[in-house]
């Protein structure tokens, strides 16, 4: 079979591979190389060694966007997962209308980041109206606005993963625990939580990476205002490329560091999942 198939490689491999090379592979390699160059279009590069990377660490806006992003990600990973898990517990108790609620809670996840940003701009500014300020009056409003937005968008998504996890638990196990006199807290701690560990790993990873990769919502809700204080990494890199002149190399170097950060998180997750599978 192997041999007959090999002759058909052009048909099966080429279409997807060509697109992959054009859209991803070549831009990726060029991007990596250009992070050591000074350039404004991709063909006029001058080699500058590590200089782009050195300039990143004197760029206070970048450091501040990294700090903002770390805080945002920590807060959203906790809030989204706790709310989502709580909702999943409520929706797996056989209450009437469970499907309708599941449909409603998941809905915001289908709305695109730009639209989400504008929806929450209206809401947050509405809430701040009695104080006579707007979302760009103070970075903390933008921060918590983005946290609220991310929660609204992702709670339903994580919830359906937790529901799937809880539903794999054998009902007999829960009933047996009940008969043995285990109260709801003990049932949660010793029956439900251990069984949904894989779901917790998946959701933690998803919220971690999406927390760092957030862009559209950031652009539409605050655009980094006031004074770039609510700018997160992806938006900072974008602004370095497209709103500052002669900073393309620095932007590309930042993008390389950003990629390493996201890759390290993903690989840690992969290692953690592998280890669990071995144990189980």
């Amino acid at each position: 079979m192997d041999k007959t198939l090999r002759r058909w490689a052009p048909l099966f491999v080429v279409p997807a591979l060509i697109c992959f090379i054009i859209a991803f592979l070549v831009p990726m390699i060029m991007g990596l190389v250009l992070s050591f160059f000074k350039f404004s279009t991709v063909t006029d590069g001058v080699f500058v060694g590590w200089s782009n990377y050195k300039r990143i660490f004197t760029d206070m806006d970048f450091i501040s966007s990294l700090w903002m992003n770390v805080r945002f990600t920590i807060v959203t990973v906790f809030t989204i997962n706790i709310f989502a898990f709580f909702l999943a517990l409520l929706l797996t108790r056989g209450v009437k209308g469970t499907n309708v609620y599941r449909t409603i809670f998941f809905m915001p996840n289908l709305i695109g980041g730009i639209v989400l940003g504008w929806i929450w701009l209206l809401i947050i500014n509405g809430i701040l109206l009695p104080k006579g300020v707007t979302i760009i009056s103070d970075p903390k409003y933008g921060f918590w606005g983005l946290v609220a937005l991310a929660n609204w968008q992702n709670i339903g998504y994580m919830m359906v993963i937790y529901i799937a996890g809880i539903q794999t638990i054998n009902r007999d196990l829960i009933e047996a625990a009940q008969i043995d006199g285990a109260n709801s807290w003990i049932r949660l701690k010793s029956v439900i939580l251990p069984s949904v560990m894989p779901a917790i790993t998946i959701c933690t990873f998803l919220t971690l990476t999406s927390g760092f990769k957030i862009f559209d919502q950031n652009l539409a809700l605050t655009a980094g205002n006031p004074a770039r204080k609510t700018e997160m990494l992806a938006l900072n890199i974008y602004n370095t490329f497209y709103t500052r002149t002669n900073f393309e190399g620095v932007g590309q170097a930042k993008a390389v560091l950003f990629t390493i950060l996201v890759a390290v998180i993903a690989l840690t997750q992969l290692a953690a999942t592998r280890q669990k599978e071995v144990e189980a």
Binding site: F20, I22, A23, F24, V26, M28
Partner: peptide, 21 residues
């Protein structure tokens, strides 16, 4: 290579990709 591409954020390739496109 395909699996690796799933991890890489868009910002890594956006500038060079749009020039090539």
């Amino acid at each position: 290579l395909l699996v690796f591409s799933m991890i890489v954020p868009f910002q890594m390739v956006m500038f060079t990709m749009s020039k090539i496109a």
